[in-house]
Amino acid sequence: MLGQLARPGTIVVADFEAGLGTVMRLDGRPVDVVVVVVEPTAKSLEVGRRAADLVRESGLGRLVISANRVRDEDDAARVAAAFPGLDLLLVPDDPAILAAERSGVAPLDAAPEAPGVRALVSLAKGLLGPAGA
């Protein structure tokens, strides 16, 4: 299905169901990139670690960990300890994102310059590569 939708030059961003069920069913139909989104809580890191293991074991695609709501050094250390040696993006805890979520607007419209939003924009640009490929 993801394959059917991909056209040359088109980018498909799939916001998956929470958890891992559907990631497991991706088996054999790899994507280019899997972004595993976590928060620095014990539960979220545990789920993220399982997702990352699964992606690596089954060679689904390039793995990027994006850690949201990172408040301090302790949070950063928790994330780093959970994903040693992996590509990590630390997104600072940003009240602007929370406020956008609470009012039901897009963070990119509400606070394009907020640090948390800028971190995610930089992730997108990084995925496109230096040549925008």
């Binding site: 958890g19 891992l20 069920g21 497991m24 088996d27 399982r50 293991d53 699964l54």
Partner: peptide, 8 residues
């Protein structure tokens, strides 16, 4: 029981 690993 919780999900673990590939082909779980």
């Amino acid at each position: 029981g919780k999900a673990h690993g590939q082909r779980w």
